[in-house]
Design a protein around this nucleic acid. Sequence first.
DNA 1: CTAATAATTAGATGATTGTCTAACTATCTA
DNA 2: TAGATAGTTAGACAATCATCTAATTATTAG
Lengths: 98, 98
Amino acid sequence: MNQIFSALSDPTRRAILTLLRQGEKSAGELAEPFHISKPSISHHLQTLKAAGLVLDDRRGQQIFYSLNTTVFQDVLSWMLEMTDRGESRQVSREEDNQ
Amino acid sequence: MNQIFSALSDPTRRAILTLLRQGEKSAGELAEPFHISKPSISHHLQTLKAAGLVLDDRRGQQIFYSLNTTVFQDVLSWMLEMTDRGESRQVSREEDNQ
DNA sequence: CTAATAATTAGATGATTGTCTAACTATCTA
DNA sequence: TAGATAGTTAGACAATCATCTAATTATTAG
């Protein structure tokens, strides 16, 4: 959990995740919009990957990254517990727990 | 938004928030469970307060801290948007690309 | 095999961060 | 007013972090 929150604490990494909402993208495509070097973006991607927030898939020379939504569920649960104030909570209104 | 995620990135601060789920607590009460100095906890509390995650209320010599759930809603929304994969809702473009 | 492209790894560096002790402010009570 | 208690602020320091350039790995095309 700590790894996840640490990964989410950087604005560039959150922006990368936002980009990935459009669908999978190669490391190069992810680097373009930013004014930081490609190695730096690569490093951020490793951080996100280590946290389980993204998945990677090499196809030829490119490595495609995509969101791993299951891990976001963990954070969502944590956040929901916070707003619930600790009462034993039933899976509220959205029971779409995939 | 950055301030919020930064505040959430530290394990001690998250533990403080978890403690506050039981209800408001004084700075001293919050410091007890940790083997960290009181000034350090105080500093963490300032960080949480600046992020809007907690509210403070001085009563006599003590200052009571409590969860500010409205701010958690912001993070929840962000997380939900991530799992939504970008359909329909406007992506509140938090930050930058730099 | 060689060159080119995509991406990562390595090593260095300046900035930020979490922690500490010491000193200070605020409040209550005798 | 003095002393005690609760908490914060100040200053220092080591560890972590985001970033860079240079070098390296992986893959494809000629």
